[in-house]
Design a protein around this nucleic acid. Sequence first.
DNA 1: AAAAATATTTAGGTAAGTCTAAAAATAAGT
DNA 2: ACTTATTTTTAGACTTACCTAAATATTTTT
Lengths: 220, 220
Amino acid sequence: MTITHAEENYLKAIFTIAEKEAGPALTNAIAAQMQTSAASVTDMLKRLSDKQLITYEKYRGVQLTEEGGRLATALIRKHRLWEVFLVDKLGFAWDEVHELAEQLEHVQGNDLVSRLDSFLGYPKFDPHGDPIPDAEGRWTFRKQAPLATLKAGERGIVTGVDDHSTTFLQYLDQLGLILGAELELLERFPYDQSVRVRIRDGRELILSDKVTQNLFVKIS
Amino acid sequence: MTITHAEENYLKAIFTIAEKEAGPALTNAIAAQMQTSAASVTDMLKRLSDKQLITYEKYRGVQLTEEGGRLATALIRKHRLWEVFLVDKLGFAWDEVHELAEQLEHVQGNDLVSRLDSFLGYPKFDPHGDPIPDAEGRWTFRKQAPLATLKAGERGIVTGVDDHSTTFLQYLDQLGLILGAELELLERFPYDQSVRVRIRDGRELILSDKVTQNLFVKIS
DNA sequence: AAAAATATTTAGGTAAGTCTAAAAATAAGT
DNA sequence: ACTTATTTTTAGACTTACCTAAATATTTTT
């Protein structure tokens, strides 16, 4: 049975939503994620259900079957490995790689993924700090929390982002808050929950509530 | 104007045929190249003509417009660069990369090709010895000829193949006739035009007429 | 030059994936 | 509980890219 690119994209979207919402993915949520109409989603859900990649009950949302979950995981693995390739090997910035990886993840062939994985040195995380599942679909978890949870005086290392938007990533770049950056939370302003942090070169930054909620750090 | 993957593939096929046959590509030739029906080709030719990528006169074959040729060349460039990547970086054998490159060539994005080119060290030839056009579409030509044209006593270096089939490539691998291999033609047997050659490690091989016609060498 | 063979196009149909508008089901508000 | 609002599905239509079968052009043969 062949699976089309569109079907793969839906599986990934369903996986992502199920992960975030912790429940069955609803039609509208999928439509939003896929930037398409609810009608198109319903259409596709029927196809995926016929192929036994999801369990689908009308008006009740969908869940991935074991096979569907396996495919979605494999796709995420491919996407993130290609992102590592684009950043580490081709020198793209972390905010430039999503679209390209979106295409590269659909390339299929025998050994491609495992060879790429090996070539890249079996990375566990992509350029945004998101975990890369291994060939068996196992995930590496990391103890990390939004910067917002740090208390004054605590130190942390930047490990990832929740918001993957270009504007956020470029802003972080500008501030020097790249993956691995060390910081110390000096002060939190109760007025708007913004914080003052010191980074490695001694510079001090003021970060808004929005930033601290979307930036993950490992407390060190 | 967007160009679909199928359209790109047709442009490439037309380019390839025009190059080989040195004339307008005919419907049946395209159908054979694309492994599809003549009716489907006619269908596509209308679309490509509407998009001004080919000039098409019913029953008279097609020719690429300047824009069509530019696109075809860019596609071939991408295909061959990806083949270099797959062989040089990921360690695939030269007979394993065609299908993968066929998919990778359709990935599009800003800087991707130029960055890949740079990463690979601006290769001029792909793993089969085929030339890779540069970013402006210029080709590097190489003085090469089928092994069949060598005279007894002459020496050559393997530079490429005409037949790209898996069986031929694997056979050459087995014989040690990889790109760059040095050989000396010792003798040609008039009966069937087969030849005896000595290769670098001193081994002698008998190569059929079919092999000598499909293997390119640079006379040295 | 007419007949036969070959090449190409047209006609009509299918499947995937999308759309809008309308209908139906479910959830929410009073 | 009943009306309203929201969500989801159905209906009908469109595009791309393919197919087969039939019709038409062109080329080759006699």
